[in-house]
């Protein structure tokens, strides 16, 4: 039986109550991308500032359920200030965790990246979402929107 504690971990509730990186960035230089979840009405506006291959800043506005809000907040903390190739790797690890990608890394390997160990660990708090299949789309909204904002790798 899927337990609510698997879904609503303390880290998730914390990021829901106090979301990180809320706000807007001037465009340009930042890019602005919108993400929607038409089924539940979740909306996310993402601002990403990429310079010299590094995601130097990220901010967001919008509204949604605790899972979508916490996921976007956790994501922003994990990717801010990191080179794009690492950001893309993080997106891939997250999607693997959500069961949306074939696992290519052994479990935990993605967390070994020096420097951002803590944010990756925090993202793992979302692992319980897979036990609630209808909520996976809530968790992935921000990540899909970020992927869209970054565009194809150059």
């Amino acid at each position: 039986m899927a337990n609510l504690d698997d879904l609503y971990r303390d880290i998730i509730l914390d990021h829901y109550r106090s979301p990180r990186n809320r706000g807007e960035l001037p465009t340009p230089p930042a890019r602005r991308v919108e993400g929607f979840n038409p089924l539940c009405g979740d909306e996310l506006v993402l601002y990403v500032d990429v310079r010299d291959g590094v995601l130097v800043d990220i901010k967001m506005t919008g509204h949604g359920c605790s899972i979508s809000q916490a996921s976007s907040s956790l994501m922003s903390a994990a990717v801010k200030g990191r080179p794009l190739d690492e950001v893309r790797e993080t997106i891939e690890s997250f999607k693997t965790m959500m069961g949306l990608r074939e696992a290519s890394l052994s479990e935990g390997e993605a967390s070994d990246d020096a420097g951002d160990l803590r944010s990756m660990k925090e993202i793992n708090a979302l692992a319980g979402v897979v036990k609630f299949p209808v909520r996976i789309k809530c968790a992935t909204l921000a990540w899909n929107t970020l992927e869209q904002a970054l565009g194809a790798p150059s």
């Binding site: 609510l4 879904l7 609503y8 539940c40 949604g64 359920c65 605790s66 899972i67 809000q69 609630f132 909520r135 809530c138």
Partner: peptide, 9 residues
């Protein structure tokens, strides 16, 4: 509490 979270709980 978002309605989805209400319904989930």
């Amino acid at each position: 509490v978002h309605p989805h979270d209400v319904a989930q709980v």
